[in-house]
Design a protein around this nucleic acid. Structure first.
Lengths: 335, 335
DNA sequence: CTGAAAGCGCTAACAT
DNA sequence: ATGTTAGCGCTTTCAG
């Protein structure tokens, strides 16, 4: 195999007997190129096996056609679903994504932002359960567009796409209340994260109030992590508070609490009901299957990326905070 | 907020009264810089809030410190686990990853490779159940290093990290045979993919042969997709062949066949045993829990990335095809 | 230990 | 419709 020399736009220009500028125009399908010279150039491109260098292109044009994506954890099926939607639309619009796991940790988020800025990404998609002040100021100071996917901003400063968590939890809590539970728990990985504190718990309270049932702080439970195991460990606390139903903000955690109950002989849904919120595939794999809020996970990611492409092209966007429709799916973990 | 001007290395040089070259050396912690001038430079860097432009750096140095990662689907928990390992180690070595979903489709893989090459990635991690000839020649013709993570190459041409699938399935099939099943099925999403055809099915045959049981082609089942639903749909075919146990090559598919059996009144494991292969968290979430081959998923990704960093630095690597240890975890889906 | 200068490969005015 | 010419912001010889 002969030594591989990098063939540049200059080589193409020489072989095609045109200028670099013309080659550039031809490969970028610029209108101002006579069809026959375009063909001539493209033929040489093919013959020399020329492939444009995006790095040089990026330096010259100040556009990298890559966007940064900050995700808590790809391993979390909720976020993974969004990521897939993001990548598909990115590809459709010729962008690539640099994916960085943050674990929802501010330090890691800041570090990621920094390297993403260095890499000159054209835009940013941020996923996380909260925007800390440091992250906020960091993202506000750069002029590259950002959109929050499945993530809220209490200050309402960034573009975002979500569902109406407050209304969704309200509706869901109502169902559990209607089934006769007056001690329904609310469990989340982190209670003080904005998405829970400002939205979901508010919806939970709304339902309680409408039903004339007092809100009890002791019925709020924290799993610490968005994992199956951390949900599984919650059983004793739940039992201690004589809870008969639970609204859970994450499917893995919900599966954990449900299995934990079942495994200890507590019948779900007869003696204990659990409802979850993401409608990931997992909700259909457990037995009983999990009743859940339904959200268009893939679409949240897809719409976020679509929004970002508009922002990156300085197009007008009608809605700054997009709310996608949600639903309630009744399965077997509730009566 | 004042207009944001990009501050360049030149600005730093001017303010620090040194040359660009010195600034470059200082920020890259090159040894040949007097400590006090380094400090002087770094102070100015901080004061001006200078941040190096990685694109320019990439063009000048021909190193982008980003690696391309081709993954079938981030939504698949097996690959997601590898991806997390990859990203963590990448971050540790100051690399970023461009993630692209391929769905294991050759067309998409080729397209992804092409744009990744244009982006001048320093290395490539490829995940997929098979290397097609086109993909092979494409990857061979570039001089950037590639490592296959959790993916085999029948021609043994690329660096890789895996477990010994053949031995693992051999051991697993033995267990099922020992339990008295003489019609054990082998099910995979795609039977003719190299990882199945050349490794797992061979292990399955080895066990059959050692047990003196004839191999029957009719006991090989294909799910078509690596999804829960496609596994769920397999029940009738399995029942028709009077199979009493199954070795499944993917956790989601395994959950599907198991639940499908249970849902139709067939008791697992009493009347039907199922064993799976990835030990993703899902295996603990189903009821009964799934017996499985255990593989160090995160580590497969992590080790792959570590290997790649060595390759990118032209360091010697002792092993070209790394095999990580596997085990067998007996849970409740088998006797 | 530091500076000068030449690119890296391409895009984008500005001409023509 | 096409060519000329500057850079984009940095690294890297090569001198000194």
């Amino acid at each position: 195999m002969k030594k591989k020399e990098t063939v540049t736009i200059y080589d193409v220009a020489r072989e095609a007997s045109v200028s670099m500028a013309t080659v550039s125009r031809a490969i970028n399908h610029n209108h101002n190129v006579k069809p026959e010279t375009e063909k001539k150039v493209l033929d040489v491109v093919k013959r020399l096996n020329y492939r444009p260098n995006d790095v040089a292109r990026g330096l010259a044009s100040k556009k990298t056609t890559t966007v940064g994506v900050i995700i808590p954890n790809v391993t979390n099926s909720y976020f993974a679903a969004l990521a897939r939607g993001i990548d598909d639309i990115a590809e459709m619009y010729q962008y690539n994504i640099i994916l960085t796991n943050s674990d929802g940790d501010e330090k890691k988020e800041l570090k990621a932002l920094n390297t993403l800025y260095s890499k000159q990404v054209d835009g940013l998609i941020f996923m996380g359960n909260e925007i800390s002040e440091a992250v906020r100021s960091d993202m506000s100071n750069e002029r590259i567009p950002v959109v929050l996917a499945g993530s809220v901003d209490s200050q309402n400063q960034f573009n975002s796409v979500n569902i109406d968590y407050r209304k969704a939890v309200y509706a869901q809590t109502n169902e559990l209340l209607k089934n006769g539970n007056d001690r329904v728990a609310f469990v989340a990985s982190h209670l003080n994260r904005s998405i829970n504190k400002d939205y979901r718990i508010e919806g939970y309270k709304d339902a309680l109030r409408d039903a004339g049932i007092p809100f009890r702080k002791t019925l709020l439970f924290e799993a610490n992590e968005a994992t199956y195991d951390s949900g599984y460990k919650l059983r004793n606390k739940l039992v201690q508070e004589e809870v008969t139903a639970a609204i859970v903000s994450n499917d893995d955690v919900a599966a954990g609490v449900m299995n934990s109950m079942s495994d200890s002989g507590i019948n779900v849904p007869e003696q204990f009901e659990v409802a979850t919120s993401d409608n990931t595939k997992l909700t259909e794999m457990t037995r009983p299957m999990l009743s859940t809020i339904t959200q268009p996970l893939y679409d949240i990611g897809a719409v976020s990326m679509r929004l970002l492409t508009k922002l990156m092209k300085n197009e007008e966007v009608s809605e700054r905070n997009i709310l996608l429709p949600f639903g309630l799916k009744d399965r077997n973990s509730t009566k």
